[in-house]
C-alpha cells in the first residue's frame, strides 16, 4: 500500500513559506497555552446552568471506566488534558507540521491536514496506533467554503477501545479538486467519498470505484456547490419547473 511506504519514508520537506507560517502558528499556540487560556474557538462554550452541570457531573461518575468525549464541559479550573487532546498530541508528535493545531472548540474539536498528500498515512496511523485506535469513521462530509476551497470533514471515533472522538479536515482548491482516498483505511469512506464526489466534485485519488452515487451517472454539475446552476434539460426532461 502506498500509505505504508509513505509513513516509512522520511517526511517531505515543506516549502519555506509554509514552514514559517506553521512555526508562527505553533509558537502562538504555545504562548496561549502557557497563559492558561484555550485557543480562540469558533463558538464560545456556553454557560451551563447548575442543573445541567450537575447532570453532566452525574453522567461522568456513572461511567467511571469510560472516557467520555469532550462535549460541553463545565469550566473547570484544573485543565487535565482531555482524551482527544492526548490523541492529538500523539498525532502531532508523529506528523509534525503536516497537520495544523488542534482547534479545541467544545462542540467538535478538530485539526486540519495541511499537506493533503499525508492524509492516507495520517488516517492509517490514527486507525492502527495502539494509543489512538480510531477505528470508527462516523461521517465524511464534503463542504464548500465559498472562497475557492472545497474540503472534507471526517468525524472519527474510537469505539470499544478508548472512547475518544476527534475530527479532521482536509482541504483542496476548486481548480485542483483532488484529495487522496482513505477508502482502504475505513470501509465507511468508500461510499461517503463517492457522495462527496457526486455532490462537490472532489475526486478522491485511488478510490476503488469513483463514480456518482446519488445522482444519475450522466448528471452534469456538482449539486451542493455554492455556485451550482442546475442543468436545463436532462434526457429531454426540463429540470427547473
Amino acid at each position: 500500500m502506498s500509505e505504508e511506504n509513505q509513513s516509512n519514508e522520511p517526511k517531505k520537506k515543506l516549502s519555506p513559506a509554509l514552514a514559517a507560517r506553521l512555526e508562527a502558528m505553533k509558537k502562538k499556540k504555545e504562548g496561549e497555552e502557557a497563559s492558561g487560556e484555550a485557543s480562540e474557538p469558533k463558538a464560545k462554550p456556553s454557560k451551563l446552568s447548575p442543573a445541567l452541570a450537575a447532570r453532566l457531573a452525574a453522567k461522568k461518575t456513572q461511567k467511571p471506566g469510560q472516557e467520555t468525549s469532550s462535549e460541553t464541559k463545565a469550566e473547570e479550573p484544573a485543565k487535565d488534558p482531555e482524551p482527544h487532546e492526548i490523541a492529538y498530541n500523539i498525532i502531532k508528535e508523529e506528523f509534525g507540521d503536516a497537520i495544523s493545531d488542534l482547534d479545541n472548540n467544545p462542540h467538535m474539536p478538530f485539526f486540519e491536514v495541511n499537506e493533503k498528500s499525508f492524509w492516507p498515512s495520517i488516517a492509517y496511523f490514527m486507525r492502527t496506533d495502539s494509543r489512538l485506535k480510531f477505528n470508527f469513521l462516523s461521517c465524511l462530509s464534503g463542504i464548500d467554503y465559498d472562497d475557492g476551497r472545497l474540503g472534507i470533514v471526517c468525524n472519527l471515533d474510537s469505539i470499544d477501545e478508548h472512547g475518544h472522538k476527534l475530527s479532521v479536515k482536509v482541504n483542496c482548491t476548486k481548480e485542483d479538486a483532488h484529495i487522496p482516498s482513505v477508502a482502504e483505511v475505513w470501509l465507511t469512506a468508500d461510499w461517503h467519498e463517492r457522495e462527496a464526489y457526486d455532490m462537490y466534485g472532489i475526486v478522491f485519488d485511488e478510490h476503488p470505484d469513483m463514480r456518482r452515487i446519488l445522482c444519475p451517472d450522466d448528471w452534469e454539475g456538482y449539486p451542493l456547490r455554492k455556485d451550482y446552476q442546475v442543468q436545463e434539460y436532462y434526457h429531454g426532461i426540463r429540470v427547473p419547473y
Binding site: 469558533k42 463558538a43 462542540h107 467538535m108
Partner: peptide, 10 residues
C-alpha cells in the same frame, strides 16, 4: 440564529 460554529451530533 446560532453563532458561527459547527457540530456533529448523533
Amino acid at each position: 440564529k446560532p453563532k458561527a460554529g459547527e457540530i456533529y451530533g448523533r
